[in-house]
């Protein structure tokens, strides 16, 4: 069953085209990740689906219903985890979840049960009577999620839910996403963390400058760049490395330096390793380690857009 269907979605802010004729479909049970750098248009798409922004052109259907004509039905079946932590510091964790759940028309015993279950789900049941001002960033993010899932939505939209938190809380959130998915929820997940996308997604859409430039599962996307390999050369002193000289070597597509690691995006079919190593040897740059990796989504993004995800 199709949960989300977007056709020709366009959104302009003045002269800026934030979302440019995007079409995509999401099937039930998928974890669909929208991957793209800041300002790519991910949040604008999410805000349109959530009903926070009007589109200029196009059509969006959620659970087979038009989001404008059937906004009440759509909103009832959708949970939104906003990018910014949107909770009340002066309400307890329990009161926060309970308040947002009442807005979905849930009352009485069912309200209490669902509130408690949502807090249990995100691991905050022992903090239910505490105020969020005493919480860590990760705990606030988890409460942010609890407020969006207590009413048991069929579609959950998570807009960069792991920004600015510690690895432990990030893992907890990613695990929650998998658990929600197993419980039957379809999830739209936006992020600019490539490793998160690799870890949880069943389908990925790559967005850049408001356009959906590629879509598919991890393997399908990596297949776009099967002709490439990434060579990582660790040196003692990267300041001596002349990127332009390296780029002149036949088969080298791009070179970036990150600390003491020189990353070379290289064409697979051209045998040029000897020339690369000679460059370092002849320029008296001692090499500590050489490593070659298969392409990841970062490489895919770099290939498709010419820039890194976090540029």
């Amino acid at each position: 069953m199709q949960i989300v269907k977007i056709q020709g979605l366009t959104k302009k802010f003045g002269d800026l085209i934030a979302v440019d004729n995007v079409s995509l479909e999401i099937e039930q049970g998928e974890i669909y990740s929208l991957l793209g750098p800041n300002g790519a248009g991910k949040s604008t798409i999410i805000n349109i689906i959530s009903g926070l922004l009007k589109m200029n052109k196009g059509e969006v259907e959620i659970l087979g219903k038009n989001i404008i004509k059937h906004s009440n039905y759509v909103k009832k079946n959708m949970g939104i985890v906003p990018q910014d932590i949107a909770i009340y510091e002066d309400l307890t964790a329990y009161e926060n979840v309970k308040f947002f759940t009442t807005l979905y028309g849930i009352k009485g015993e069912e309200l209490k049960r669902k509130t408690t279950e949502a807090l249990e789900f995100v691991g905050l049941n022992d903090k239910s009577d505490k105020f969020p001002k005493s919480f860590s960033g990760g705990m606030k993010r988890r409460l942010n999620i609890a407020c969006a899932i207590a009413h048991r939505p069929k579609l959950i939209i998570m807009d960069e839910p792991t920004v600015g938190i510690d690895p432990q809380s990030r893992n907890h959130i990613l695990e929650s996403v998998r658990k929600l998915n197993k419980l039957g929820c379809t999830i739209i997940y936006t992020t600019h963390y490539m490793e998160e996308v690799e870890a949880i997604s069943t389908k990925i859409g790559i967005i850049d400058h408001g356009k959906l430039i590629a879509e598919g599962n991890k393997e399908e996307l990596k297949a776009i760049v099967t002709d490439r390999q990434a060579i990582y050369i660790t040196v003692n002193d990267s300041e001596k490395v002349n990127i332009n000289e390296l780029k002149k070597i036949n088969g080298v597509v791009d070179v970036t330096v990150d600390g003491n690691v020189v990353e070379i995006d290289n064409k697979k079919e051209i045998n040029n390793w000897d020339k690369i190593i000679t460059y370092f040897y002849s320029n008296s740059i001692p090499v500590k380690n050489i490593e070659s990796k298969v392409p990841n989504l970062e490489t895919v993004f770099l290939t498709l857009t010419g820039r890194k995800l976090r540029d």
Partner: peptide, 9 residues
């Protein structure tokens, strides 16, 4: 939280 409320029915 205003946006969150608007996202509810």
């Amino acid at each position: 939280t205003g946006d969150r409320i608007i996202g509810t029915p």
